[in-house]
Amino acid sequence: MIRFAVVGSNPSAPLSLFDPGRLLRATCTAVADTDLAQARQTASALGTHVTVASWDQLVQQHAENFDAVLIQAPLGSRAALVRQAATAGKHVLVESPLASTTDLADQAIEACKAAAVRLMVGHEMRFLPSNLAVAQALKSGQLGEPALLRIHRWLPPDTTAALRRDPDSNASRAAAIGHLADEIDLANWLFQGFPTRVYAKARSSSAIHSNLPSSAEINGHDYFQLHVAYPHDGMALIDRSTALPAGADYFSLSLIGTTGAAYADDHNNMHLAYRGGPPTAIRGVQGDGHWLTQVQEFIDAIHEARDPVVTGKDGRAAVRVAEAAIESMITGSPVLLG
C-alpha cells in the first residue's frame, strides 16, 4: 500500500480530480494547504482527516506517514517543492508543467535522481481516453509513422488551471509555459521524440485591429499557436485559446500517419437538444477517469520500481519546447532545438 499526501488542495485542481475509492494499492494519509478549510474539504473527499497548513508542517509532523506526494502548488513554487519532497525521500507526482524554467526542471530531476525516488509529471492529456486510443493505434502500427499532428484546445478563462492558481503571473512567461506544456508533451509523446524546430505566434483575442503579435513581450496573450517540427519530417500544429466564453471547452486531436489516420474530435461526439430555435450541442464527455488513470500509473510505477510513463525528462522537454516557443513569439523567427 502506497501512502500519499496531497500538497495544494484546490478541489478542482487536476490531481484532486480522481475517485479515491477506485485507487488500487494506495491511500491518502494527509493534505497540506495554506487554506485549511479547503484542505479539510479535500481530505474528507480523499478519506483522511489529517490536514496541515504547509509542506514544512507536513514533513515535520507526518513524515513517517506517507511515501509519496501529489504536488499541485503554484508553478512558481512547484520545482522547489519537488526538490524538498525528494530530499525527504518521497516519490513525487507533480502537476504539469514541472517547472517554470528548464534550469528549475533540471534541479528537480536531479534531486529526485539523487534521492532515488520516482518523479512523474502530471501531463494529464496523455491519459484522456481518446488520446490513449490514438496512441494505441499508433503504437500498434496501424497508422504507420506519425506525420502531421493537429491539436485545437479552446478553453474559457476560468478553467485555465495555470492561470487560476497563478493569478500574479497571469502575463508572465511562466504562465505562457503553463498554457503550452500539456499540448507540447502530448505532441512529444505521440512523435516519441524531441522537436527539431519550433515557430510560434501569440496574440490577445481582444486586441482586434492592433498590430500584433511579435511584440517584445507576451503579456496578456490568450491565444497561442505553435508549429513544431519533429525528426523524419514530422510536424505538429497546435492552437490554444483561453478566450472562450464561460462554459464548455473544446478539444480536437487528429493524427495523420504514413499508413492511416486517427481523428479524436469533440466535433464528432456531440448530442443534440431541441428546445426551440437552433438545436444545442451537448458534448459526449469522456468523464474524469483519466485523472484516476494518471494517479494509478504513478502508484503502479512505485510498486513496480519502474519509471512512470511520464518522466521528469518528459516534463523538462515540454518546458524546453515551451521556452523555445516563447522565444519564437518574441523574435518572430523559428527556433532550432536539439
Partner: peptide, 30 residues
C-alpha cells in the same frame, strides 16, 4: 492586422478516411 491561422493539407492515402477526406474549418472569435 495581426490575425493568425494555419493550414494543414495533404493527399494522405485512401486508407486514412472513409470518404474524400477530413476537411474542416476552425474559427476563433472574440
Amino acid at each position: 492586422g495581426g490575425f493568425l491561422g494555419t493550414l494543414a493539407i495533404g493527399r494522405i492515402g485512401a486508407a486514412s478516411h472513409p470518404d474524400i477526406g477530413e476537411i474542416k474549418v476552425h474559427v476563433l472569435g472574440t
